[in-house]
Design a binder for these strands. Structure first.
Length: 312
DNA sequence: CGCATTTGACCAGCGC
DNA sequence: GCGCTGGTCAAATGCG
């Protein structure tokens, strides 16, 4: 069972095909082991949640270690986090949490208000929508994406989604589905598509932040795996620690290079992986890793800040 | 009946 | 300007 997570923080353009970015694949592999247990209701988007629900996913983005990630031959889940953001690239040494998250989350929060207002207008008339679009370029929310090897397209992440569109993807036989959070005033969207390189891989791209808790009742425990609840979301640590490397896109070479954070989720599962709802919920269906994985803290310590480890 | 999904049409952005 | 592509809308349809 492989899982690849990709963080795509596209602050502006968003015109690039995400699949194009991920299609080249990432050399690193890790192990994403999950304990068996009840499905967590925690939504993956909580990782992106606003201040009320925990630290932003981007809080978890840590400066890359100086060492290149070891190329693992493990067939186990691979988590690949990719951040694509010119702003971030300008401060590559500190995808540090606070700076990034504060910037991104605040921007999003402010933007959400605007978006909500705009959405009201949009619902009134389409003409008004056109006017807005013509007057200003549409700004995109920060996006977070991950790749999951899965038979199911739509991953259960604890939130309710409504499909509002489907489009054929260029150079891919698989269509891309567009989902929107069904919660009123929550403008989080996500796209789901399959990799044309590996049809077994589902690429899910989230855009925006949920401004509400997961609508699904969450279970109190997860087989000994600590859950992140909404009030202590900061405990979450998306396994976004890893090596940052430039990724040369094979098709859209004109695009600025983005950062790949290659993850080693196997080391994270006990402490953080459980909060990675979508990936976790999905992956745990297929993987039942051995206990030995839990013991490998050497690599974990290499890629996870010590303070994060202490939070377990 | 209410909600979710499907699907064709429409629009904006971008490259040529 | 034109065509392509991504993204969204909204009517039609399906389903529980």
């Amino acid at each position: 069972m492989d899982i690849k997570k990709v963080v795509e923080m596209d602050g502006g353009m968003g015109s690039s095909s995400f699949l194009d970015h991920v299609s080249a694949g990432f050399p690193l592999q890790g192990i994403f082991d999950f304990a068996e247990g009840e499905k967590s209701s925690l939504g993956f988007m909580e990782l992106l949640g606003v201040q009320d629900f925990g630290s932003s996913l981007f809080d978890m983005v840590q400066p890359p270690p100086s060492t290149a990630p070891p190329s693992s031959s493990s067939p186990n889940p691979t988590v690949v986090t990719k951040m694509e953001s010119p702003e971030l690239l300008n401060q590559p040494a500190t995808p540090n949490s606070s700076s990034i998250s504060s910037a991104s989350s605040e921007a999003v929060n402010d933007e959400q208000v605007k978006v909500e207002e705009q959405e009201e207008d949009q619902q009134k008339t389409k003409k008004q929508l056109k006017a807005k679009k013509t007057n200003q370029k549409r700004q995109r929310e920060p996006r977070f994406a991950f790749m999951t090897k899965s038979e199911v397209d739509h991953l259960e992440d604890g939130y309710r989604w409504r499909k509002y569109g489907q489009k054929a993807v260029k150079d891919s036989p698989f269509p891309r589905s567009y989902y929107r959070c069904t919660t009123v005033s929550c403008n989080v969207k996500k796209r789901v598509e399959r990799s044309y390189n590996d049809p077994s891989i589902v690429v899910t791209t989230y855009e925006g932040k949920h401004n509400h808790p997961s609508p699904i009742i969450q279970r109190p425990s997860l087989a000994g795996v600590p859950l992140m609840n909404n009030s202590v979301g900061s405990n979450f640590a998306m396994p976004i620690q890893g090596t940052i490397s430039h990724y040369n896109h094979h098709q859209q070479q004109q695009q600025p290079p983005f950062v790949n954070c290659l993850l080693q989720p196997m080391n994270l599962h006990c402490n953080y992986g459980s909060t990675n709802a979508a990936a976790y919920l999905h992956e745990r269906r297929f993987c039942n890793p051995g206990p030995a994985l839990f013991k490998d803290h050497g690599l974990l310590q290499d890629i996870i800040p010590s303070h994060m480890l202490k939070e377990e």
